[in-house]
Amino acid sequence: MRTITTQEITKAIKEMCIEANHTLSPDMKAVFQAASQKEESPLGKKILDQLEENLIIAGQDMIPICQDTGMAVVFIQLGQEVHIQGGSLTDAVNQGVREGYAEGYLRKSVVSDPIERVNTKDNTPAVIHYEVIEGEALHITVAPKGFGSENMSRVFMLKPADGIEGVKESILTAVKDAGPNACPPMVVGVGIGGTFEKCALMAKHALTRNLEEPSPVPYVRQLEEEMLEKINGLGIGPGGLGGTVTALAVNIETYPTHIAGLPVAVNICCHVNRHVNRML
């Protein structure tokens, strides 16, 4: 049994919210640089250069990379040997978001109700996904999600007979429809299998996976490579203004599913694919 206090958790979440909104992870920077060299459109190249400069300014001057500092999506893997002391874990996470968005001069973009739409003024609540795992560690991933790209995400409930070709078509349809709205070059997270909600959650989680590490499953890795090439062949390009770099990466997760179904979720993220990991 190990004890972790809610204060430690709040502090970690606060720092992670601020870090995620000002500095992209090394894998994002790496795929960005690789993409810049591949872009064939002069305007596309110019936009990619400006986006790289934007990242430098954001880090140096502490200006958020994007004004949409997102809704805070938090993945928590809680070791079953951990005892949380000092109150509710969920409250501790939300307090961290509250403090991070205030102290980090981040935009408060959350409304308390989807219809009544009154801003909560502190960017809470976060969307928190809990998973209980073995051991006595607490793994936290903070992934602030912008809604320009979130709005272009899709779930397709395919038939088993649609097979892998159906999956490919679904991914391409989502990306084509997203076009310039999703702030390309995008990162495409895909969940295949499970149930309606499980595939969506996998698609979201896939966006937090290291972009330089392909899937360990051979056919999935192949699919990731093939889809990246097909997406870049759409011509959408940086900013949607034409070019050969439409996506920076395609990350896919899979899960067992029902004999009657083939759910596919496509969660699109812009080039500001923010994710910070920490283990307590």
Binding site: G233, G235, G242
Partner: peptide, 15 residues
Amino acid sequence: NLYETAILEFCTGGN
């Protein structure tokens, strides 16, 4: 509309 015309220039396949 640049969004429509620019894509055609760089599209290699199904779009």
